[in-house]
């Protein structure tokens, strides 16, 4: 979806992004990094707000330097800060934005109403934006970002300042949009939980460089090898059968065991073996690598994506 080709961006005399090189293929990508790491600058550059110092980026195969206007037609942007014309009504503002995106007046009006109902502000759409609460403003920002039906959505801190129920509503909406066929989104957030709940992949920036780019599911799966389980009816034969699968196994009292599964062994094989020896697996825990672990490792410079780990194991 997005190709970063040695992208460097300088603002004033400071180099903010330095030789970013990555191919972002996921449908929902979380952009993470500490303050000042270049997340917003990357989004702004992809939107064409900042010219690259060197290198470039391609969105859907089109160069951001030469096809900026064309690309902006298929991009929706929800900025972090309050960006409104406060003396306009919600419906007036979003319709205005839809028309500027190129929608004819009637279609713009129709989609504005739909967008407001979609984000749950249907009843408040004729109120002036200045009278909206913080949560409503966030939803109105989402409405203006999706009103023209973009294919790629940039969401900059979409849950900022939201209370837990409002945050959950926002997350649900983002997931729903993400699951629409042909839809892609980039979510920049300092809340790891938001990224964990909405995204398939995470791009972690540190000091304007890529500290990590990983597929979250793959990273999680990679840590299934550490397993704790409680069994009923386990005997020596079961233990031997598991070891024959290639697992390292340590048994404790009351049928408790700790296992290390090799990468080739799937969980299904463990269940099949248990069924074969009439062993009940009452409880099974495998430690998931949380996004926080990945993030902290990336910040320490120790992150190695799972694919690369596999390659190094093979070699």
């Amino acid at each position: 979806m997005i190709e970063l080709e040695d992208l460097s961006v300088q603002l004033g005399k400071r180099l903010i992004l330095s030789n970013l090189k990555a191919s972002l293929k996921g449908r929902a990508i979380g952009l993470l990094g500490p303050n000042g790491s270049g997340k917003s600058t990357l989004i702004n550059t992809l939107l064409g707000f900042h010219p690259p110092l060197s290198g470039t980026a391609r969105i859907f195969g089109k160069d951001i330097r030469t096809h900026a206007k064309e690309l902006r037609r298929v991009i929706g942007y929800m900025p972090e800060s309050d960006s409104f014309i406060s003396d306009m009504t919600g419906v007036g503002f979003v319709r205005y934005m839809a028309e500027i995106s190129g929608l004819p007046a009637n279609e713009a009006m129709e989609r504005t109403h739909e967008a407001f109902f979609y984000v749950g502000l249907g009843e408040a759409r004729y109120r002036k934006l200045g009278t909206y609460s913080l949560g409503m403003k966030q939803m109105a920002k989402l409405a203006q970002a999706i009103v023209h039906g973009p294919q790629l959505l940039f969401l900059d801190e979409p849950t900022n300042g939201l209370d837990p129920p409002a945050r959950q509503r926002m997350i649900n909406l983002i997931r729903e949009i993400r699951d629409t066929p042909g839809m892609y989104l980039i979510l920049s957030s300092h809340l790891l939980r938001d990224v964990e709940e909405c995204c398939e992949e995470a791009l972690i920036l540190r000091d304007g460089k890529i500290a990590a780019y990983c597929n979250l599911d793959e990273e999680r799966r990679s840590n299934r090898k550490f397993i704790e389980m409680e069994t009923v009816g386990a005997k020596e034969e079961f233990s031997s059968a598991i070891e024959q699968l290639g697992c390292e196994c340590a048994w404790f009292s009351n049928g408790r065991a700790k296992l290390v599964l090799p990468p080739s062994v799937e969980m299904r094989q463990l269940y099949n073996t248990a069924a074969q020896f009439s062993v009940q697996i009452r409880k099974i825990n495998y430690r998931k690598d949380s996004l926080e672990d990945i993030f902290l490792r990336a910040m320490d410079g120790k992150f190695q994506p799972e694919k690369m780990k596999a390659q190094s194991n093979v070699s």
């Binding site: 902006r72 991009i75 500027i100 203006q144």
Partner: peptide
């Protein structure tokens, strides 16, 4: 930014 994030220069 909302104007300029659209196909509008």
């Amino acid at each position: 930014p909302l104007y300029l994030a659209r196909p509008f220069s």
